[in-house]
Nucleic acid binder design. Structure first.
Length: 648
RNA sequence: GCCGAGGUAGCCUAGCUGGUUGGGGCGACAGACUCAUAAUCUGUAGGUCGCGGGUUCAAAUCCCGCCCUCGGCACCA
C-alpha cells in the first residue's frame, strides 16, 4: 500500500501553473500506480492557519475563516477541472485536524521533545496583538542598521534575542511596539541530529530535495512552535497559545488520511505503507528535516520518499505574481476553454520532474498541436474512422511484432514511473503513437482495401491493438480525453489494468468516432501572450516619465563605517547616514576604495531601492558610481551638504 | 561567500554507473501519400556536447582548474 500526498496549498491565494507542477504529476503518478494494480491513498488539503491569512483576511474585509473557505472552494474547483482526484481533500481548520494535531503535540511533549522558555516578544498596543518576527522592524543594537524581527538581516547578520531589537515598530500599522515577556514552547529539533543523518541517507526521492536537506543537517536549531494568535490550533499545554503553522500543516497529512481511509493506522502508526510526499522545492526543508523529526518524536511512521518538483518559469522568466509572470489556472487557462489534458500533458512532458519547467504559450500551442494532436490524436482518429467506414467490427488477430512493441512501451513506462520520470513515460506513449503512424503508412491499408479486404483487416487489427494500448497507457496523463475515445471501442478505462494492453479481444466494434482533440489556433493564445507582454512592457519602458523619476528617492549620504565583506573581492559593507536613518549598504567598490578613505565621504544613494541580499548580507540601498573600465568611481556632491538632502 | 542545479545544432531537450556513426522534437528545405484535424511518411541541411588541462586503448559521460547562467541561504506558508 502507498500513501501519496501533495504539499498543502496555502489558502491565501489562487492556484497558478506553478502550483500544478506538483499536483498534476502526483495525480499522474497515482493513476499509473493504480493501473499497475497498486493500492494507493491520495490526499491533500488546504493549509489554513498562520499570520499571513489573518493579515490578508483583514485587508480583504473578511474573517479568516471566510478567506480560507473562499480559497478552499477555489482549490477544489480547479483540481476537479484538471482531474486531479484526491481521495480526500481536507482543510486544517476542521475539528478532526485540530484533534489529531493536539494529540500529536501531546505525544511530543510526553516524549520530552517540547520545553518551555520565557522570551520577550514585540507587542503592538495599537493592533492589540503580539507581533510575529516578520511583522517587527527596528534597529540592530550591535551595528545600528535596520533589522527585522529576530535577525539583523541587513547588517551584521547576528541573531537577535527577543527583546534586543531597538526601536521596534509594528509593520502592520507602523506604530511603536513594546516588549512583553511571555512563555513560549520549543521543539527540540537538535535532539534529532543523529536520527536525521541516518534517515536522510536512506530517504529516497528526487536528488534536488535530498541535496537541499543535507546542507542543513549540521546546523539544526530548536524551533519555537507556539504563536500568539487567535487563529490556529490551540496548543494543548497552554490554551492561550496557538501552534505555529508548520507544526499543524504537515499533520494534515495524517488527519486527512484518517478521513480518507480506515487503513490510516496501518499507514501512520504501524508503518505498513510507503509514504510518498510530492512537494515544491521551496518546502524541502520542512519535509526532509522538520517533519521527519516530528514524526519520530511522536512515534509515527516515517515518509519513505520526498519528490520535489523543479520551479516553473513563465515565458522564460521566473514566475512572479507582482510582475505579472504568472498564469492563473482558473481565470486564464480554464477560462480560455483549453482542454485540461493539454496542460496535464505539458506539465508532465516538458522536462524531467526535478528540473525547471518553462511555460510559454507558444510552446504550449506547438506541443499540443504537434504532439497531442498531429501525432497522437491523429493516429487514434485515422484508425478509428478508417475502421468505422470500412469494417465496423474487426476480428482481432495481432502480430507478434506489434505485441512486442506494445510490451516494450509498457515496460518503459513502468520503469519510468517507478523512478518518477514522468517525461520518459509520456515520451514512450508518443513514441508508440508514432510507431503506429509509420506502420499504418507503410502498410497502405487504403490501397490494400481495393484488392484484399481480409489482409486489410489484419493490418487494421494490429492498429486497433495499438489504439487500445495507447488509450490505457495515456489514460493517467489525459484521463478525460481518453475516456471519451475509449467509449468508441467500448472499453471502460476505469476497469483496465496495465496488462490489458497485451490482451487481444476476439472482436472490437468501432462506433462513429469524434475528433479526440481540438487544435489550438493562434488567435486563442494571442490575448494571453499579450497580457503577459503588456505587464512586462510596463516595467521596461525605455522612456521614463517625470512621475516615474520622482519615485526614485535619491539622497545624499555620509559614509559612517566601511568594512570589506569577508571572502568577497568586490563587495564592501557600508553604513551610510542618510539623515533620517543609518543604512546598511553593500557596494561593489572594494577594488577601487579602501575602507579608510571611504569613511566620511559624501555619496548619492537611491534610498528607496528594494532591499536585496548580496553574499548573504542585506543591502537596503544603492550607491551611485560611474563605471570606468569595470572600476567604480563614486559620485560625490561638489560642496559639503547635509546627509539626507534630496537629489533632484 | 556557502550549497545546489545547469551550460549539447537557430530554439527546446535526451544521453552523463565511459565504448558501436551524440538520440528526439520544433523550425527550414526536398520528396511521397491521401485513411486522417494542410494531418502522416521518407529524406536533406545544421553540433570542436561552455573553456583549458588530466586519466584511459577509448570521454558529452570520470578527475582538476576556470568562465557563464539560474535557484536557495531557513523558522518568511
Amino acid at each position: 500500500m502507498k500513501l501519496v500526498t501533495c504539499g498543502l496549498p496555502y489558502a491565501n491565494g489562487k492556484l497558478h501553473v506553478g502550483h500544478l507542477r506538483t499536483y498534476v504529476p502526483a495525480d499522474v503518478y497515482v493513476r499509473y500506480l493504480r493501473l499497475m494494480g497498486e493500492k494507493v491513498v491520495f490526499i491533500c488539503g488546504s493549509d489554513c492557519h498562520g499570520t499571513p491569512i489573518v493579515v490578508n483576511a483583514e485587508k480583504e474585509g473578511l474573517k479568516p475563516q471566510e478567506l480560507v473557505d473562499k480559497y478552499h472552494e477555489h482549490f477544489k474547483r480547479v483540481f476537479k477541472a484538471l482531474n486531479v482526484e484526491f481521495d480526500f481533500f481536507g482543510k486544517t481548520t476542521e475539528s478532526y485536524h485540530h484533534e489529531r494535531t493536539r494529540e500529536f503535540v501531546k505525544k511530543l511533549a510526553e516524549n520530552g521533545y517540547i520545553y518551555k522558555k520565557e522570551i520577550e516578544l514585540a507587542y503592538c498596543e495599537n493592533c492589540n496583538m503580539f507581533l510575529p518576527d516578520r511583522y517587527v522592524e527596528g534597529i540592530c543594537p550591535y551595528c545600528k542598521t535596520p533589522a527585522r524581527g529576530d535577525e539583523c538581516d541587513q547588517g551584521c547578520g547576528r541573531h537577535l534575542e527577543p527583546g534586543e531589537i531597538l526601536e521596534p515598530k509594528c509593520k502592520i500599522c507602523g506604530n511603536k511596539a513594546v516588549f512583553r515577556k511571555q512563555m513560549h514552547y520549543f521543539f527540540k529539533l537538535t535532539a534529532f541530529q543523529d536520527f536525521l543523518e541516518e534517515y536522510l541517507s536512506n530517504l529516497s526521492g528526487t536528488e534536488n530535495a535530498l541535496n537541499y536537506a543535507r546542507q542543513w543537517i549540521g546546523n539544526l536549531k530548536d524551533w519555537c512552535i507556539t504563536r500568539n494568535l487567535d487563529w490556529g490550533v490551540r496548543f494543548p499545554l497552554d490554551e492561550s497559545l496557538v501552534l505555529y503553522v508548520w507544526v499543524d500543516a504537515p499533520i494534515g497529512y495524517i488527519s486527512f488520511t484518517e478521513k480518507a481511509t480506515d487503513d490510516w493506522r496501518k499507514i501512520w502508526l504501524e508503518g505498513k505503507a510507503e509514504i510518498i510526499h510530492f512537494i515544491g522545492l521551496d518546502i524541502a526543508y520542512h519535509h526532509c528535516i522538520f517533519w521527519p523529526a516530528m514524526l519520530k518524536g511522536a512515534n509515527y511512521a516515517l515518509p519513505s520518499a520526498v519528490i520535489a518538483s523543479g520551479m516553473v518559469k513563465i515565458e522564460g522568466k521566473n514566475l512572479s505574481k507582482s510582475r505579472g509572470y504568472v498564469v492563473w489556472v482558473e481565470d486564464e487557462y480554464l477560462k480560455a476553454g483549453f482542454n485540461p489534458d493539454y496542460l496535464r500533458y505539458y506539465l508532465v512532458n516538458y522536462t524531467s520532474h526535478d528540473k525547471d519547467l518553462n511555460f510559454s504559450w507558444d510552446v504550449f500551442r506547438e506541443k499540443v498541436n504537434n504532439e497531442i494532436i498531429a501525432t497522437f490524436g491523429n493516429f487514434l482518429f485515422r484508425i478509428l474512422s478508417f475502421v468505422w467506414k470500412n469494417f465496423g467490427v474487426v476480428s482481432m488477430e495481432v502480430d507478434r511484432e506489434i505485441l512486442s512493441k506494445i510490451e516494450e512501451t509498457k515496460n518503459k513506462i513502468v520503469n519510468a514511473i517507478k523512478k518518477w520520470e514522468f517525461k520518459s513515460a509520456s515520451d514512450a506513449v508518443m513514441e508508440l503513437a508514432s510507431f503506429g503512424n509509420v506502420y499504418f503508412q507503410n502498410s497502405k491499408p487504403w490501397e490494400l482495401l481495393k484488392s484484399d479486404k481480409a489482409k486489410t483487416m489484419k493490418v487494421v487489427a494490429n492498429c486497433l491493438q495499438i489504439v487500445k494500448a495507447l488509450l490505457i497507457l495515456s489514460y493517467p496523463i489525459m484521463p478525460k480525453s481518453m475516456e471519451k475515445v475509449a467509449g468508441t471501442i467500448g472499453i471502460n478505462l476505469g476497469n483496465c489494468s496495465i496488462d490489458d494492453v497485451l490482451k487481444v479481444d476476439e472482436k472490437i466494434e468501432v462506433k462513429k468516432p469524434d475528433l479526440p482533440f481540438k487544435k489550438i489556433e493562434n488567435e486563442e493564445i494571442e490575448p494571453l501572450k499579450k497580457a503577459i507582454q503588456e505587464k512586462f512592457c510596463e516595467k521596461n519602458e525605455s522612456e521614463v516619465s517625470i512621475e516615474e523619476f520622482r519615485k526614485m528617492d535619491f539622497r545624499v549620504g555620509k559614509i559612517v563605517s566601511a568594512q570589506k565583506i569577508e571572502g568577497s573581492k568586490k563587495l564592501m559593507k557600508l553604513v551610510v547616514d542618510i539623515g533620517s536613518e543609518k543604512r546598511q549598504i553593500v557596494a561593489g567598490i572594494a577594488e577601487s576604495y579602501s575602507p579608510e578613505e571611504l569613511i566620511g565621504k559624501l555619496v548619492v544613494v537611491l534610498a528607496n531601492l528594494k532591499p536585496a541580499k548580496l553574499m548573504g548580507v542585506e543591502s537596503r540601498s544603492m550607491i551611485l558610481a560611474v563605471d570606468v573600465e569595470g572600476k567604480p568611481i563614486l559620485l560625490t556632491p561638489e560642496r559639503e551638504v547635509k546627509p539626507g538632502e534630496k537629489v533632484k
